[in-house]
Simulated assay, not measured.
Amino acid sequence: MATQTPAARPSRIGSAVMVGLGFVRAPFSRGRRRRQEELMLELLRQLTRMTEEMRRANLIQQYRLSVEQMDRAIDDPALAAAMSTLTGLSERRRRQMLFSNRQYGVLLMAHRVGVYDWDELVGHLRVLCRNEVFAEYWASTVEHRRSVPDESLESRVGSVVDGMLEDLRDDPDEWWVVGPVPESRE
Rank of each mutant, 00 (worst) to 15 (best):
V142Y: 11
E37K: 09
L121P: 06
D75M: 06
T5A: 11
R55Q: 13
R32N: 09
R102L: 15
D173H: 05
R33P: 00
Q62E: 15
W176M: 11
A73P: 09
D117K: 00
V17F: 12
Q4M: 10
T51F: 04
D150T: 07
E120M: 03
A7M: 05
L21Y: 04
E183P: 05
Y116E: 00
I13F: 11
S147D: 13
R126M: 12
S184H: 04
E52T: 07
L153P: 01
D117H: 10
A135M: 01
D171C: 07
R146S: 12
P77W: 04
W175R: 06
R32C: 07
M70P: 02
E120W: 00
Q69N: 14
R34K: 13
E186V: 15
L39N: 04
T5Y: 04
G123S: 05
E136R: 12
Q4I: 10
V178S: 14
W138Y: 00
Y116N: 08
Y116C: 01
N58E: 13
T87Y: 00
R169N: 03
V161N: 02
Q69K: 13
V160W: 02
L168H: 05
Y63E: 12
S184N: 11
L153R: 08
T51L: 07
T5P: 01
R25L: 15
E42S: 07
Y137G: 09
R185I: 11
S84E: 03
V133P: 00
V113K: 07
G163Y: 14
I60A: 09
G163W: 10
D117L: 08
C129M: 02
R145W: 08
V24W: 12
T5N: 07
L165W: 03
V67A: 14
Y63T: 11
E166R: 13
R145F: 11
V122D: 03
G114W: 00
E136F: 01
P6H: 07
D173W: 01
A82V: 12
T51V: 08
V113H: 02
Y63N: 15
D76A: 06
L165V: 01
V148W: 14
R49D: 08
E120A: 13
A8G: 10
P149T: 11
S84R: 15
A80K: 09
F28I: 14
E132T: 09
S155K: 15
G114V: 04
R56D: 11
R30E: 11
P149R: 14
R169T: 06
A8E: 15
P172D: 08
D71H: 11
E186K: 11
G22C: 14
R146N: 09
G31A: 13
S66T: 04
V106M: 15
D76T: 04
T3E: 06
P180L: 03
R93K: 10
V67S: 08
D167C: 04
S11P: 09
S90E: 01
P149S: 08
S140Y: 01
S66F: 08
R33C: 06
D170V: 15
S147H: 12
R64F: 06
L125A: 00
M109P: 04
G31Y: 15
A7Y: 00
R9S: 01
S147T: 10
A16H: 12
Q4H: 09
A80H: 02
R92Q: 14
S90Y: 02
R112T: 05
R102H: 11
E143V: 10
A26C: 08
V142Q: 14
P10T: 14
A2T: 07
Q62Y: 12
S100N: 00
S184D: 14
S152I: 08
